[in-house]
């Protein structure tokens, strides 16, 4: 008998990046590409928003890709198969618009690759020609290549240092595709905010409708706090209930970057303090 939010399978797919299959039958049943969940690994953890990469309705599971980067994501990645996540809520947000658009380019960087996977798969199933451009810092950090190859018509693998695939950013490949005369009917992008901003700048020139999946600071995930607000088309939107996907050409990326950076220092201080505490405790124990 599986317990609610039990981790069924855990794989390390890159340094600090884990793929978790979690038992959440109600979420699996309802999930549509583009939606997300909010979870709390332990009783003391933050609420973390994460995008679902894949669902398995039959087994009642969802697959998450997580980078252990902050305190709470580290705790999540510290859990093992058989452990249960304390709280998990979803699916949240609006599903991605899935239609027959024609040729769609998926541009994913880092863990954002996982975010765009479900959307890419659904678009493929809807009869689109899917071109996937996935990127990572180097060979070690390249994730989900096989998954993308299985659902894409073309896959371009990019690394910043050229240690695998082609050298360069995913955005360079996008420029190249346009230069080659490829017609793109839609671009979907998820990843670091600076990357999404450049994607938006490139596609704006070519007037290609472009969707970005935003991943801002979030607390409740249900429209209650406004912490995840972003400026889109000059208006304040709540990413959790109005998004998470938006028209890339309308997003104010600058304010998004600033809002996301606001907590970075606090977390680093907290983490530092925690390590210090552990260090002190250790020294006391050792006399």
């Amino acid at each position: 008998m599986k317990i609610m939010f039990e981790i069924i399978d855990k794989k390390k797919i890159a340094p600090d990046i884990y793929q978790l299959e979690v038992y959440a039958p109600l979420v699996a049943k309802k999930f549509l590409a583009g939606q997300f969940i909010v979870l709390r690994p332990l009783e003391t953890s933050e609420r973390i928003p994460l995008t679902i990469m894949r669902k398995d309705i039959e087994n009642g599971t969802i697959t998450l890709v997580v980078k252990a980067i902050g305190l709470s994501t580290k705790e999540l990645c510290g859990l093992n198969a058989g452990d249960a996540i304390t709280d998990l809520l979803g699916p949240l947000g609006h599903p991605s618009q899935i239609d027959s658009f024609g040729t769609v380019a998926i541009v994913g960087g880092g863990v954002g690759t996982a975010v765009s996977f479900a959307v890419a798969e659904s678009l493929k199933n809807a009869g689109n020609r899917v071109i996937s451009i996935i990127g990572a810092r180097n060979k070690d950090f390249m994730i989900l290549e096989d998954d993308f190859r299985a659902i894409s018509d073309e896959v371009y693998v990019m690394t910043d240092d050229g240690s695998y695939g082609m050298k360069g950013f995913v955005t360079q490949k996008l420029i190249d595709l346009y230069a080659q005369g490829k017609t793109l009917d839609r671009v979907i992008s998820a990843g670091p905010i600076p990357m999404m901003r450049i994607v938006a700048d490139i596609t704006r020139e070519h007037k290609t409708p472009t969707i970005v999946s935003l991943n801002p600071i979030m607390v409740d995930g249900i429209g209650m706090c406004g912490g995840c607000r972003a400026v889109v088309g000059g208006k304040i939107v709540f990413v959790c209930v109005d998004g998470p996907e938006f028209d890339a050409h309308q997003v104010d990326f600058d304010s998004l970057i600033r809002r996301n950076n606001a907590y970075r220092n606090i977390e680093q201080e907290k983490e530092h303090a925690c390590r210090l505490d552990a260090h002190i405790a250790e020294s006391i124990k050792n006399g």
Binding site: V219, D220, M224, C225, G226, G227, R229, A230, V231, I236, D252, S255, R258, R259, N261, A262
Partner: peptide
């Protein structure tokens, strides 16, 4: 300017 860092809604502050 309501998107500036350092501006909370009461809900966000109180929820945190």
């Amino acid at each position: 300017g309501e998107e500036l860092v350092g501006i909370y809604t009461a809900n966000e502050l109180l929820t945190r």
